[in-house]
Design a protein around this nucleic acid. Structure first.
Lengths: 114, 114
DNA sequence: TGCCTCGTACGATAAACCTCGTAGTACGGC
DNA sequence: GCCGTACTACGAGGTTTATCGTACGAGGCA
């Protein structure tokens, strides 16, 4: 297992049991972060931070990714100079079945409603 | 319809179409407010603010109910000296099907996991 | 009328949050 | 070794937030 060690430093992630519902909801309650999560879910694969064309600076982007990581919504792994972000859909679904899907579905609906 | 006019002043509520997913998630991301919503859902009926034994002062309680009302999560109606709070489960379910239920279920699970 | 209860309004405080800019580190390629 | 790319760290500014305390208004009841 453990592919090619992903090269380099590790980032602190909460383990599955440490993920708190309140933190997840808070992480998803910011428009920028919800957008990130939606894109991640739509793409269905890991994306690097720079794949997102967000209307904020890089520092702010870093901040949002950190919130998402610390709340347990995404997993971040260094891969050379890039940092790949993946949705922790498996962990979230194990803890809170169906929650993520409903949020994504709700976001889609709302986006369509505008 | 409109029972006995509920006596007195009205409070500003967002209409169904104005309810924003981000606001709802934000409202639910506070432990005190999530607790209120869970109690409301468990009880299945309208409750007055004083029915909740929250570990905060009355002013703070008022504040949290206001956030819940302005985000569209609860509906508040005056009834004499009391103010009844009801979950807007119908509106939320119409906008974001299944979302509220999953959040409540997730909260139950998490409470049980502790 | 007067009082009690329920809830609001307002002000204050301390913490958290979103945003930015600048400076810095890690990695890969020339 | 040197440079560019990708991201981080730190600090700052301005807004929002959660909390409190005190003072006030509205409604029921004696």
């Amino acid at each position: 297992m453990t592919p090619p060690a992903a090269s380099g430093r590790d980032l602190p992630h909460p383990v599955r049991e440490e993920i708190r519902l309140e933190s997840v909801l808070h992480a998803l309650s910011d428009p920028m972060r919800l957008r990130i999560v939606r894109e991640l879910a739509a793409e269905g694969r890991e994306l690097s931070c720079s794949d997102f064309a967000l209307p904020v600076t890089k520092s702010t982007t870093t901040h949002h990714f950190r919130v998402l990581r610390e709340s347990g919504v995404v997993r971040q792994v260094y891969r050379g100079t890039a940092k790949l972000n993946g949705l922790r859909a498996d962990d979230l679904d194990a803890l809170f079945p169906g929650l993520l899907d409903r949020v994504l579905e709700a976001a889609d609906r709302q986006a369509g409603r505008v």
